[in-house]
Amino acid sequence: MHNSYWFFALLISSTILFCFILFKKRNTQTLFLYLTMVGYGYIIETTIFNFLGSYDYNPNIIKHNSFYDSELGAFFSNALSLPVTATLIATFQLNWIWIVFFSGYFVGVEWLFLKLDIYTHHWWRLEYTGLGLPLYFALAKLFYKWILQPSKGFRHNLILYLITGAICASAHILPMLFFSNRYYRPGWFENLGRDSIALSAIWYLCASLFYCLMVKINWKPKWIKYILTGLFIYTVNQVLIKIGILHSLVWWDKMFYVGLALFLILLVGLIDKRLSNQILAVKSPS
């Protein structure tokens, strides 16, 4: 059980740090940046972890499926500790000395987790982490500048997609990890858990794009987009069930994802307007 203590330590410390950032900044731009970095991290993790098998986590929290347990360990890193630190660096305008410091800190944490045997490398190396994190933190500073400048072009749409992906992926995959409400079996990997999470990742990437496109279309009347979204998600679920890829295991499963889609259309629309119309007063870090 000691495995989980270290991951919960990351959870608690990241939560405290994020609450501190929100308390000091008290604006939605900070939250948007955090979600942007989560969404960006998810894309990287989908590539190197889900599909390329870079490493495994062993938090020993989810007992019934080892890959789901590993996926949860990745969640602690990519949805909590790394994006929260990136948000701190960008919103407080910390310089390269701090970027190097935090990069070294996380390399040290990764080394410690390796020694504790709660994290395992396959082809990944500590050097890759040490080289990748400064770029990740620097990118957070760039994204924050974009968020502070309302726009309608590529920058706006990229930020909106990453935010949508962060919310969509978390809401889609976490119920599968904890409640085993469904699994996917496209046949890409022998391990059922990895196979299921891999297709879930493709689902959220495509669904996030769909939600962003639906929000951008000027529907009249507006309720039509909700009807079309609900029908589309329900139909996709039914098709995947018919061809044997989706296996729905609980009575509320399909209703949950249809309801989630409708909620995301509403939420993404609000975020889109906020990103477009916000008038910002950038505060100096204190």
Rank of each mutant, 00 (worst) to 15 (best):
F67G: 02
S103N: 06
A281T: 15
I243A: 02
I147M: 05
G39F: 01
L213E: 06
N157E: 10
L52A: 14
S196Y: 00
L262G: 06
G193R: 04
E190Q: 13
I245M: 02
L135N: 03
P150S: 09
K63C: 04
V84D: 05
S81K: 09
S276V: 11
N277H: 10
F32P: 02
L162P: 07
R194L: 00
L72Y: 10
M176W: 00
N27T: 09
T85H: 05
L213A: 11
T28E: 10
N50H: 15
V215H: 05
F143C: 07
V215Q: 08
Y55A: 08
L22H: 10
I224T: 12
K115T: 08
F8C: 05
F232N: 12
F137A: 09
L31Y: 13
Y226H: 08
R26T: 08
A138V: 12
S248Y: 05
L52Y: 13
D56V: 12
L177S: 03
N78L: 14
F51W: 15
N58W: 14
P83I: 01
C206P: 00
G53H: 12
Y161D: 00
V250N: 03
N50T: 15
Y34W: 14
Y55M: 08
N237Y: 12
I233Y: 08
L249N: 12
F67E: 02
E45C: 06
F7A: 06
M37Q: 14
Y40D: 04
T235E: 10
I202S: 02
L160G: 03
W219E: 06
M37E: 08
Y234F: 15
G73Y: 07
N218R: 15
G259C: 03
G193D: 04
Q29G: 08
S248R: 09
G39I: 10
L72A: 09
L126W: 11
V282W: 05
H122S: 09
S103W: 02
T229P: 10
P83E: 06
D253A: 11
I243H: 00
N191V: 13
I243F: 05
S13K: 04
K145F: 03
L17K: 07
P175G: 02
L52D: 01
L192H: 02
S4P: 06
Y183H: 12
I241A: 06
K24V: 01
L260W: 05
M37C: 07
Y136W: 07
G244R: 04
A86R: 07
I241G: 04
V268S: 00
P186H: 05
I279Y: 02
F178H: 04
N27Q: 10
F106G: 03
R194W: 00
W123E: 07
F92E: 11
Y68W: 13
F154D: 01
A140K: 09
F23A: 14
Y119G: 07
L133Q: 03
N65A: 07
I173F: 01
K152D: 13
N218L: 12
F8L: 12
D195K: 04
W124L: 15
I279P: 00
T129G: 11
S77D: 11
N191W: 06
L264D: 02
I147F: 04
A171E: 00
S276G: 00
A169K: 15
D195Y: 01
R155W: 14
N58Y: 13
K273H: 04
D253K: 01
V100G: 01
H121K: 02
